[in-house]
Design a protein around this nucleic acid. Structure first.
Lengths: 139, 139
DNA sequence: GAATAGAGTTAGCCTTGCCTAACTTTGGCG
DNA sequence: CGCCAAAGTTAGGCAAGGCTAACTCTATTC
C-alpha cells in the first residue's frame, strides 16, 4: 500500500486522469492525458516515463500506459478525495467550473483524518435535506 | 484590491507568515520567517526581494520587512481561509499537526464560493452543538 | 571605539514540471 | 505494400523555488 505523499501532486494528477481514462475508454493514450490535464503531449511522455521507473505505471514506448497495483491504489485514493469534495460543493449549488478548480487544488492535501470529517458532513447533508436547505438559505 | 491568484502559493505562504509575525511580535525578521516556513534564510531573502518588486512588501536591506496595503489584503485573505478550515477541523477533534498540514495545503485553492460554503457549515456546527456531537459520533 | 557573533545577503547550483521544435513510429488507406 | 498523417518521443530550454557556501552588515560587549 503506497503512501499518497510518496508521489508529487503532479504525479497524482497524472495517475488520476489515467485512471479516469481507462475507466471510461478502456485505455489511456498520451494525447488524451495531455488534453485532460491541458498540457503538451511531450510533458506527458516525460512524466509517464518517471512514473514507470517509480513502479506506478507500466509504460511501453509508443504503446500506451497502464496502472500498476500501486498506481491504481494512489489513483483511487485521489479520486475518492475528489469525489467527496465535489459532492459537498455540488450540494451547495456551486458551478461545475469552480468545483473542478477548487477540488483539483485541494484534493492532494487532504489527510485520512480530514477526509473522514468531510465524508461525515457530506453524508449528513445528503441524508438530511432539510438541514442542507437551511444552510443553503443562509449563504 | 489585489487578486489572491495574482500571487503564487509560495508567495502567499510568505505573506501569511509575515502577517502572523508582525501580529504577534510587532516585526518580521528573515530568521523568523525562515523558521516558520522551515526553509533556509537565503531563500527568504530572495522571495522578499521579489515581493518587494511586486509591491506586496517594503523591504529594506538588513532592516526587515513590512506589508504594503496590497500585501496586507492578500495575507488577510489567506489567514481567513486558514482560520475557517482550522475551525472546522478543530471542531471535529483533529490534532493540531494534521490541521496545520492539511490547512496549509488546502487554503490556497479555495475560491470565494467554496469559502462561503465552509463558513456556513462551520457556523452551523458552532451554533448547533447537538448536530456536531451527532456527527462526531458517526466518525 | 574595536572585535566579533550572529543575522542577512549574494552567487551559483539543483530539481520539478512545464514548453517548443524536430525527429520517429504507428497504422490506416489507396 | 508503401505512404503519410497523426501520435508519440527526444532534446534543449525556462521559471519557480528550494539549497549551500562564502561574504557582508549589525549590534553587543568589553
Amino acid at each position: 500500500m503506497p503512501d499518497l505523499q510518496s508521489s508529487s501532486t503532479a504525479a497524482q494528477d497524472y495517475l488520476e486522469q489515467i485512471h479516469r481514462l481507462i475507466g471510461s475508454k478502456g485505455y489511456a493514450r498520451v494525447a488524451d492525458i495531455a488534453a485532460a490535464l491541458e498540457i503538451a503531449p511531450a510533458s506527458v511522455t516525460t512524466m509517464i516515463q518517471r512514473l514507470d521507473t517509480e513502479g506506478l505505471v507500466v509504460y511501453e514506448k509508443y504503446r500506451g500506459v497502464v496502472l500498476t497495483a500501486d498506481g491504481q491504489d494512489i489513483a483511487e485514493e485521489v479520486v475518492k478525495r475528489h469525489e467527496v469534495l465535489a459532492r459537498l460543493l455540488r450540494s451547495f449549488g456551486l458551478d461545475e467550473k469552480t468545483i473542478y478548480q477548487d477540488v483539483e487544488g485541494m484534493e492532494h492535501h487532504i489527510s485520512k483524518a480530514t477526509l473522514r470529517v468531510l465524508i461525515t458532513i457530506v453524508e449528513e447533508l445528503e441524508r438530511n435535506p432539510k438541514l442542507l436547505q437551511k444552510l443553503r438559505e443562509k449563504m
